[in-house]
Amino acid sequence: MTQAIQAAPLGHYRFKHVVRSEVVKILTLPSTAVMLGLTVVAGLLVTGLVTNAALHHGSGYYIGFDPTQEALTGLIVAGLTGGVFGALLITGEYSSGTIRSTLAATPRRPVLLTAKIAITAAVMVVFCELLSFVAFFLGQAILSGGGAPSASLGSPGAFRAVFMTGLFIALLALMSFGFGLIVRSTAAALAAFVGVVFVLPLVMRGISRGDVRYLPTNILVNSVMSTVHQGPGGIVQPLSAGLGLLLMAIYAAIALAAGAVLFARRDA
């Protein structure tokens, strides 16, 4: 080549370059704002409706009442939309063909994938933590405004529940990203995600009631969101919050690891 327009910098492309580019990718997709906006609106709406429905009951209603869990109910919606968001971050690249541009620009697949997972995790953790705390405060405001029992972050287990719920939803999104990496199609990834998170608990209940507590949805609702530890109906003792979160992290790690192995080996 006769004239170079600019001299190439020393060294080589690194993790930080991929991270910058992945951040721009996320920010320049309209679906990001749509998904996250929808999550905020729907999540807070559910929290508002659920806490409002818990107002003005007789005192018997509030035995075992868990104001923290009530307020965090809206985060279940975030579990769904967050899962869609996580899957789309990778399947969108495959369905559009962008993945080939991405791999041509940064062909070292482990570096690329590490950056993608790190960005997805960072975005989801920050977003879900914010939403979790906002939902908590909104729910408590409605409960206390209506004269029902309410909690503060200082209440036993409340901060732990709010904080871990945010992390848990982020892990759900990462598991969904892993599904997306494995199947490389939006429809199939979402089917897998909804299947595991929302259908499997229903099926499992009919097969082995005691094992339902190991499923993501049940961990979220019964172990992570709740501060009053008595299983619904008292039949099944839920896992502890810490163990539940650890189990969810393992699920996400398995999905991501399987996806990563395939990503490194498969033709793009």
């Binding site: 492309y13 370059h17 991929v18 910058r20 580019s21 992945e22 721009v24 990718k25 320049t28 997709l29 309209p30 679906s31 969108g92 690249e93 559009s96 063909g97 962008t98 080939r100 541009s101 991405t102 620009a105 940064t106």
Partner: peptide
């Protein structure tokens, strides 16, 4: 090989950053 929802400039921007 680009995302249909991204603008042409933004497609080239993320590529340049890599």
């Amino acid at each position: 090989a680009f995302h249909p929802a991204r603008t042409a400039r933004n497609h080239l921007r993320w590529l340049a950053l890599t």
